[in-house]
Design a protein around this nucleic acid. Structure first.
Lengths: 186, 186
DNA sequence: CAAATAATAGGACAACTGTCCTAAAAAATC
DNA sequence: GATTTTTTAGGACAGTTGTCCTATTATTTG
């Protein structure tokens, strides 16, 4: 049982708050309150807000990579691996309705802020894209690149509308539609 | 030639800045500087930032309705009317790459802020949805509601990824894909 | 032209932001 | 147990935020 350092706890809480409230709208004071440290102590762990954001993005990259590796290791058929990706929409349905997709909303926010870490945040998208492309290539598709982009775009759109309309049925409908589309590749 | 009042100019500039920089990240001071009025004078036109946001949303609703009415009046076939909607992605390509979709990004931001005007902003989506549903109904589809949602979701996803990857070709690819999908209904 | 209304400018206000300093407490090391 | 290093708390700092007040200038109305 390894001890969880304060630095890690800060990043984990910041990760959640950035997702639920947005990066800019989340203040040091609020994170400090949630982590239960003083604002002054914050500076010891992270000198700037961007430094903290960088750590949050690295955490997300690591978590995403881990998830993709797990899907790869489960020993499913390729097409079912892709369905794992689609299933995120359903299993994270509640959060998505409340806060949208964590990847899409962060990159959108950083884009508007002209934030230097925008490209860094986009790497999460690149991770998904590389993995999906690899799957479609395994299915012998030479348009794997486009197919991967298309599938990510689809799920992004579903997340955006689910967040706007808070409609549970909509996600189910779209999941079904996507899976039917995937049947063509099986 | 009707005179453009200062109040209207404020709303128009705020509309642009909210789109390019986000609602929260845009300050009164900045809008005042762009409109070339003093910060003090701002209070005469809009008492609170939410009041200004409300006006911006009403402007967007009005502009959107106008655009939909124009598409309706152009006398095209129904399927080509729907293609008008798809074409926004291409004709607004540059802005979308820089700032994403104005509708999707605003609703996403307001959702994270838990802002009371979130539902008001969502009405722009409802406008598009109602119009698209009507078009699909004209094509005799009894799943017009779902089809309209699906098409909006698609374009939202395309906008999100185009913004993240700044990829011009991607939008073209997806436009083509959507139009091929629409061919089935012709 | 005079009176009333509309519009503007400049600044005050408290609250909050990210950042940073310093002194004290806790923990680890020797 | 003494010393060094790590971690913490509290507060200061200048800058910005949305909001609001008041005095002055334009414009319209009678």
């Amino acid at each position: 049982m390894t001890k969880i350092t304060t630095g890690v706890r800060i990043v984990e809480k910041a990760d959640i708050l950035f997702y639920q409230q947005g990066f800019e709208h989340t203040s040091f004071a609020q994170i400090a309150a949630v982590v239960r440290i003083s604002r002054g102590n914050f500076y010891y762990h992270f000198k700037t807000k961007d430094e903290l954001l960088d750590a949050v993005i690295r955490l997300r990259l690591s978590n995403t990579q881990q998830m993709l590796d797990d899907w790869e290791a489960e020993g499913n058929e390729t097409i079912d691996r892709i369905r794992c990706f689609v299933r995120i929409l359903v299993s994270n349905q509640r959060d998505i309705q409340h806060f949208g997709c964590p990847v899409g909303t962060l990159t959108a926010e950083l884009s508007k802020l002209n934030h230097p870490l925008e490209k860094h945040a986009n790497k999460v998208f690149t991770l998904f894209h590389g993995w999906l492309k690899h799957q479609f290539l395994s299915l012998g598709r030479d348009d794997a690149d486009q197919l991967a982009m298309h599938l990510i775009a689809l799920s992004q759109g579903v997340a955006t509308l689910a967040n706007a309309f808070k409609d549970e049925k909509f996600i189910r409908n779209e999941e079904k539609r996507i899976n039917e589309w995937l049947d063509e590749f099986a």
